[in-house]
């Protein structure tokens, strides 16, 4: 399968207590990619760097196969193509929603106010008299919806979203998945979405490619269908627990037996055990990989 990349990067950034070390990051074009990791894994830092909000890093980034991060700071067209939403202040708290539209027109040449108003209505942001509501009076959910409305009202090719599902209620999360699918459909194959989450279960149905991060590094990455063949969910009997512990990435065991995730190619180590196999969910794979990573880190 021929894959082009929306973003390719090689990044490094160190703080006193933390280090972001990503020798090769690849976000495929035309798909929805999930950046999965616990809080503190480095997701926000990575997205900030990719969105151009943070400039203190070493390394380089290539956008859409043709723009470098240097060009991103020099040419207006690069940041025009990127829509970012995130958990920080984002807006000045004293702004009213009407001002957000005015400022957007100055910031982005493809911003359309009619589109923005339509999205505000569709997503039910603020209700009646919304235009006069201040950012500081909005709930986290409404602010998230406002950011989403803002990026959808422009012509973009990449959406970078930092924990978009977190402040949203379950109904709105599904709506977000729908929005992502519509976004990808609109320009078949030319648009990409890269979002982060610490709870992939909510966004699993829309995720095509997963990047699992732990301790500032990428622990695993791949198309979801490929990952579901690389890993397998195993259930077995209590007597085989010692053998299972050596093979499985993550295992929960009790007196009735064990279950956990392991690499498919290691299954032969469990030959002779009475086990049942299942295709793991992305959630199960992520948890297993992250925990394995944490254990490796501890052993150092």
């Amino acid at each position: 399968m021929e894959v082009n990349y929306a973003i390719e990067a090689s990044l490094h950034k160190s703080y006193s207590k933390f280090e972001l070390n990503i020798p090769r990051l690849m976000v495929p074009k035309g798909f929805a990619t999930a950046l999965i990791g616990e809080n503190g894994a480095g997701k926000t830092t990575l997205l900030n760097i990719l969105a151009g909000i943070r400039l203190d890093y070493q390394g380089k980034i290539t956008y859409l196969g043709r723009y470098s991060d240097r060009q991103r700071e020099e040419l207006s067209e690069v940041k025009e193509k990127i829509g970012y939403t995130g958990p920080g202040g984002y807006y000045l708290p004293q702004w009213k929603i009407a001002q957000v539209a005015q400022i957007s027109e100055l910031l982005f040449s493809t911003f359309r106010k009619e589109c923005f108003d339509m999205w505000c209505r569709q997503l039910a942001i603020g209700g009646d008299g919304a235009a006069n509501k201040r950012i500081s009076s909005l709930s986290d959910g409404n602010r998230e919806k406002l950011m989403i409305a803002g990026v959808l009202s422009r012509d973009t090719e990449i959406l970078l979203m930092d924990e978009p599902a977190s402040p949203l209620d379950p109904l709105m999360r599904e709506r977000l998945c729908e929005i992502i699918r519509d976004y990808l459909l609109e320009d078949e194959g030319e648009r990409s979405v890269f979002f982060s989450t610490h709870n992939i279960a909510d966004m699993e149905d829309v995720t095509d490619y997963a990047i699992i991060m732990a301790n500032g590094q990428i622990a695993e990455a791949g198309f979801v269908e490929d990952l579901k063949e690389k890993y397998v969910y195993v259930r077995g009997e209590a007597e085989d627990i010692p053998q299972a512990k050596k093979t499985l990435f993550r295992i929960s065991s009790g007196k009735y037996g064990f279950e956990g995730v392991c690499l498919a190619k290691k299954l032969e180590q469990l030959a002779g055990c009475d086990i049942s196999l299942e295709t793991p969910s992305l959630s199960q794979i992520s948890v297993a990989v992250m925990e394995h990573s944490r254990n490796m880190e501890r052993q150092g």
């Binding site: 399968m1 035309g30 798909f31 929805a32 998945c177 729908e178 699918r181 519509d182 990808l184 459909l185 078949e188 194959g189 149905d205 829309v206 995720t207 095509d208 490619y209 198309f223 979801v224 269908e225």
Partner: peptide, 22 residues
């Protein structure tokens, strides 16, 4: 139907429809 159109209609991810077509 295109892979993304089908993914939208079935409410699943694009890579799944792509693999089905493959």
């Amino acid at each position: 139907p295109s892979i993304r159109r089908l993914a939208k209609d079935l409410k699943i991810s694009v890579i799944t429809t792509m693999k089905a077509y493959e």
